[in-house]
Design a protein around this nucleic acid. Structure first.
Length: 265
DNA sequence: CCCGTGCCCTGGCGGC
DNA sequence: TGCCGCCAGGGCACGG
C-alpha cells in the first residue's frame, strides 16, 4: 500500500516521463473513477509537473490540479504493450506517449480542482503537514487532547500526513512506544521522538525506492525497503532488539505488529 | 465534537 | 481439484 515514500517514488517516475506532455484524450474504462465532465475538462490540459502531499499525487495542469490517490494498489505505467491489462482503468493518451492507471482493487481516486480550491476543498483541505515540515508543538498539542491509540493517530492524515500501516508500526517500534499508548498520555519528548523517527524511516525508505509488499510497484521496478522492516509482518519472529516474539493485534481495524517488551505504554 | 464501525473492491489463501 | 469465506487496506459516511 503506497505511503509517502512510495508516492514520492511514483511522482519522480511521472516527472521523468510525462512532465510537459499534453492530454489529448482519455479512455475511462471504469466509469466510476472519472466522470464525463472531469474527463472533458482534462482534455487539452498540459502536465506542468507532479507534486505530492502525504499519500496524494497532484498533477499540476494548465488550469486545474488533478489529485490522485493510489490507495492500496494503484499504479502508473507507460504503455508499451498493445493489449490492455484487465485492471487498466484509465488510459491517458498524451501527445507523445500513453500513460496508464492500473488498480486491481479499484480503490484509487481522482479529484479535479481549480487551482485556488485545491487546498480549500476535499480531499486536501484537512490534510496535515508531512513529518518533514510538521510543527512539533502543534503535533503534540493535537495528539495530547486525543483519547485514542498512537497507532490510530499516526494513521490519521488530519494529524500527520503520509504515514500508513507499515511505517506507523516501524516508527512506533523505533520510538519504543506501544501502539496502544494513548495520545493523551504522550509527553512532548515522546511526540518529538515520533517526528524524528518518522523523518528517519521515511527518508531511508525513499532512498531505497519504497517498500514492496503485496503488489506495490512504481514503474515495474520493486522497492527494496521491505528487507529493512523491523517489526511489520514479523509476527512471532524475534524482536531484533530483545528477542521477544513480535505480537500482532488489530488496532482501529488495522493489523499492528509490535514488541510488548520494548514498546512502552 | 469525538470516536467506532462498516463499506468500497478483488485476489489470494486456508479449510474442507 | 474446486469452491467458499475471509482477510487485506485508506478514507469517508454514518451512527451513537
Amino acid at each position: 500500500m503506497p505511503e509517502l515514500p512510495e508516492v514520492r517514488v511514483v511522482s519522480k517516475f511521472l516527472n521523468s516521463t510525462v512532465k510537459g506532455s499534453t492530454i489529448k484524450d482519455i479512455d475511462v474504462r471504469y466509469k466510476k473513477m472519472i466522470d464525463e465532465e472531469t474527463k472533458r475538462k482534462l482534455i487539452g490540459q498540459k502536465i506542468n509537473k507532479i507534486d505530492t502531499h502525504g499519500k496524494y499525487l497532484i498533477f499540476d495542469l494548465t488550469d486545474y490540479d488533478l489529485i490522485s490517490h493510489l490507495r492500496m494498489e494503484g499504479k502508473y505505467y507507460i504503455r508499451t504493450a498493445k493489449e490492455f491489462d484487465k485492471h487498466d482503468h484509465i488510459i491517458f493518451y498524451l501527445d507523445d506517449k500513453v500513460l496508464v492507471y492500473n488498480d486491481v482493487r479499484k480503490f484509487g481516486t481522482f479529484d479535479l480542482r481549480k487551482k485556488e480550491l485545491t487546498y480549500k476543498t476535499k480531499p486536501l483541505n484537512k490534510l496535515a503537514s508531512e513529518p518533514f515540515t510538521i510543527d512539533e508543538k502543534e503535533f503534540y498539542e493535537n495528539i495530547k487532547k486525543r483519547n485514542v491509540p498512537l497507532k490510530t493517530l499516526l494513521l490519521n492524515q488530519e494529524v500527520i500526513a503520509g504515514i500508513g500501516n507499515i511505517y506507523a508500526d516501524e516508527i512506533l517500534f523505533l520510538a519504543k512506544l506501544h501502539p496502544f499508548k494513548l495520545g493523551s498520555k504522550t509527553t512532548f519528548k515522546e511526540a518529538k521522538e515520533i517526528i524524528k523517527y518518522s523523518k528517519d524511516v521515511l527518508t531511508r525508505a525513499i532512498l531505497k525506492g519504497g517498500t514492496t509488499i503485496y503488489s506495490f510497484k512504481s514503474d515495474g521496478n520493486v522497492g527494496y525497503f521491505a528487507q529493512d522492516l523491523q517489526v511489520h509482518h514479523r509476527y512471532n519472529e524475534p524482536c531484533l532488539v530483545c528477542g521477544t516474539l513480535i505480537d500482532k493485534e488489530k488496532i482501529g481495524g488495522r493489523t499492528s505488529y509490535y514488541c510488548k517488551v520494548c514498546q512502552r505504554k
